[in-house]
């Protein structure tokens, strides 16, 4: 669930519930975006504490849904602990994802439509251009992320590529509005949701995770701004 981008209190709550249903008297869960601690006390003298670190984070709602389903089934007593573990591993390995082309298509649709919504102008020339550039940027970001372990590099380079493409489109068809196109196209990578999620964590009292997520969102935003800024500044558009 942590990997899938769920809120922290929900993660802690689910783990606590699973443990209580498994018959453990005292449970302490402490979650952070980078790792999760669980301490279990079964009433005898021994206390078990485990730490699991989380390296990769993204938003994957299918994962959140599957885990929720499983913990629900477990709470209802439809599956036992061993089955739960099997199924959890199963979900982890074989969560169906949408094919990449569909994701890219979604990104394209997102950039084209959001451009119109945000700016409240209906210029039908910019619409397909923003869509194509947004889709390409999303694909490029995905591809680059699978090739590098440096965080934020992929975002910066993709933003630069999008800036290049937008300047190119503007040069080809001068009727295009560079700013409008970029507002739409960049929306595919903008961490607006990460920021909102971070604030929600803060309001729920999860200070550490809120601040970590906020820094992550800020860094992504800076990377995007830097990438697109360099290109526009250099080409003087």
């Amino acid at each position: 669930m942590l990997i899938g981008g769920s809120e922290m209190y929900r993660v802690e709550d689910t783990m606590r519930r699973i443990a209580v249903n498994a018959g453990i008297k005292e449970v302490n869960v402490f979650g952070m975006p980078t790792g999760i601690f669980v301490s279990l006390d079964d009433g005898t003298n021994s206390t078990v504490t485990e730490l699991e670190s989380v390296k990769k984070r993204s938003i994957n709602l299918e994962l959140v849904d599957r885990f929720n389903e499983l913990s629900r089934e477990f709470a209802d007593g439809r599956i036992d602990l061993d089955q739960l573990e099997d199924r959890l591993c199963d979900v982890d390995e074989r969560t169906p994802t949408f094919p990449l082309w569909l994701q890219v298509l979604g990104a394209g649709a997102l950039s084209a439509t959001l451009m119109v919504l945000f700016l409240n102008v209906y210029d039908w020339l910019d619409l397909p251009v923003a869509g194509v550039i947004g889709a390409f940027g999303y694909w490029f970001d995905d591809w680059l992320n699978s090739h590098t372990r440096v965080r934020f590099l992929a975002e910066m380079v993709s933003a630069a590529v999008m800036g290049l493409l937008a300047v190119g489109a503007h040069a080809l068809w001068p009727a295009c509005n560079l700013n409008n196109i970029l507002v739409g196209a960049l929306m595919t990578l903008v961490p607006g949701l990460a920021l909102t999620n971070a604030l929600r964590d803060l309001f729920m009292g999860d200070w550490v995770s809120g601040i970590v997520r906020m820094v992550e969102a800020a860094m992504t935003a800076i990377a995007l701004g830097g990438g697109v800024g360099m290109v526009i500044r250099f080409l003087g558009a």
């Binding site: 981008g5 709602l61 298509l105 979604g106 990104a107 649709a109 997102l110 439509t113 119109v116 919504l117």
Partner: peptide, 20 residues
């Protein structure tokens, strides 16, 4: 326009975050 586009935009984003 606003009805259709807000719907498409949301679904487009939902696709990228792998919604069930």
């Amino acid at each position: 326009i606003n009805l259709i586009f807000s719907y498409i935009a949301t679904v487009g984003f939902a696709l990228t975050v792998n919604i069930p």
